[in-house]
Design a protein around this nucleic acid. Structure first.
Lengths: 235, 235
DNA sequence: AGGGACTACTTTGAATACATTATTCATTCA
DNA sequence: TGAATGAATAATGTATTCAAAGTAGTCCCT
């Protein structure tokens, strides 16, 4: 993961796992992966170490790597943790965010609402394919502004939690997400009011709901269907 | 980090960093490290990836690894995060821990108190060197029993937070720690009472205090004294 | 004398090679 | 017939080699 190659491998394998192409428990062949990406095993191995620290891959000495067996409960739990940490950031934002930051937050939220309403009315069909990416970007900006109020270590952990597991990845894959906007509105209101506990609670609720949505999406992608892994239990 | 060598390297370098032998920002030479441990650079590189994901090492492409520049604020923040997550586990324990678990928790706490009082009275001077390790073990057991009530992902994150930065590592290095016992007593009482919010708050307070203690200990070890790193700022 | 460019050296990142361990499949014995 | 043992095969972990980027030191020019 030092140079560029390892990072590419990380992204590639993460995509394979999160899209359900590689299934839960499935073995990951280093040599096959290396041939597929036309790189040697050195960057492959470093990438697998990264993914194992993220919790997406299980590494067993002398037995190699396999896709981690994540249950729906694990995903829910992960989002709950994410909520607890992001809630801390939101509480700090309610205490510390200055007027400029709040204005910026309002602007992003307004744009978010605008794009969402437009698409829900069925307009702009010609560039409809761009909408999910745009919504995801605006969603990301919204959270980033809040998280900037938090100390460095909290931001560090939030970055890791965000990548460790399917998070906002899918939230807007299927278009407009009404619930997310309401949640964001509540978070924004609490922060603007300087209400730390309100912001914390709103953020936690938001991520709990996101977790349930993510599980639903992952189910449709066959994420939880176990592949033929070495740990596979016979029935 | 696949085989056993990588893990040894991780433990070795972590020790160097946490004891202050390697100082903040100092460059880590792969070849020198390999010669010191008599292993090749392959496991070294994988170990450095692990440590970079833990936040103890900073990895810059084509420039190699250096000890992460952690400030006292980072350590405090880290403990606050630890507290938030451990607080969640404690709240769940207050809801879910059965009678056996509570009894076990009481037993560990009683033993903890007993060992501590003994040593504070100056008794058992012949095996005094064993006391810190014993206290640390009992402290660990106490938290482990609580954490077992939490879902898998929460336990996973707690494990990582525990290793990522000097945590309970030093708490009992200097012998008896009166404050920790009072904290544990409060946590135990809240859990036994089935009081989730009380347990959460007690756990958070406990770790905030631990964070301050850890910073004090790290200061005496010269942890925050910057070494001659590549990013070193000229005054 | 100070600054910049060129060269030599060091160190990293990636690929290949080697050794050891797990897995598989066939054969044999109960 | 089934389980167990053993060799053959495949894959992992580690070491070594090779190429490219970075660093430092010197020399030259202004």
């Amino acid at each position: 993961m030092r140079g560029v190659l390892g990072q590419e491998v990380v992204d590639y394998v993460r995509e394979l796992i999160l899209t359900g192409t590689l299934r839960s428990g499935e073995k990951i062949d280093q040599q096959a992966l290396g041939e597929a990406l036309e790189v040697s095993r050195s960057p492959i191995r470093e990438a697998l170490v990264v993914l194992s620290r993220e919790g997406l891959v299980e590494l067993i000495p002398r037995r190699g790597a396999s896709v981690a067996r994540l249950s729906p409960e694990d995903i829910i739990d992960h989002y709950a943790l994410f909520g607890v940490v992001a809630g801390r950031a939101a509480a700090l934002a309610a205490e510390n965010l200055d007027a400029d930051g709040i204005a910026e937050l309002r602007a992003v939220h307004a744009r978010f609402l605008e794009v969402g309403e437009t698409v829900s009315e069925g307009a702009d069909p010609e560039d409809a394919s761009l909408v999910p990416a745009l919504l995801q970007q605006l969603n990301h900006d919204f959270h980033r502004i809040i998280n900037l109020s938090a100390p460095g270590r909290t931001r560090w952990l939030l970055r890791h939690l965000e990548h460790s597991v399917p998070t906002s990845y899918y939230e807007f894959a299927n278009g407009w997400n009404r619930a997310a906007v309401d949640h964001h509105a509540a978070i924004l209101a609490a922060i603007a009011d300087g209400n730390p506990e309100g912001a914390r609670g709103a953020m936690e609720s938001h991520l709990l709901a996101s977790g349930e949505a993510a599980v639903a999406e992952l189910v449709t992608r066959g994420f939880f269907e176990a592949g033929a892994g070495p740990e596979e239990e016979a029935v």
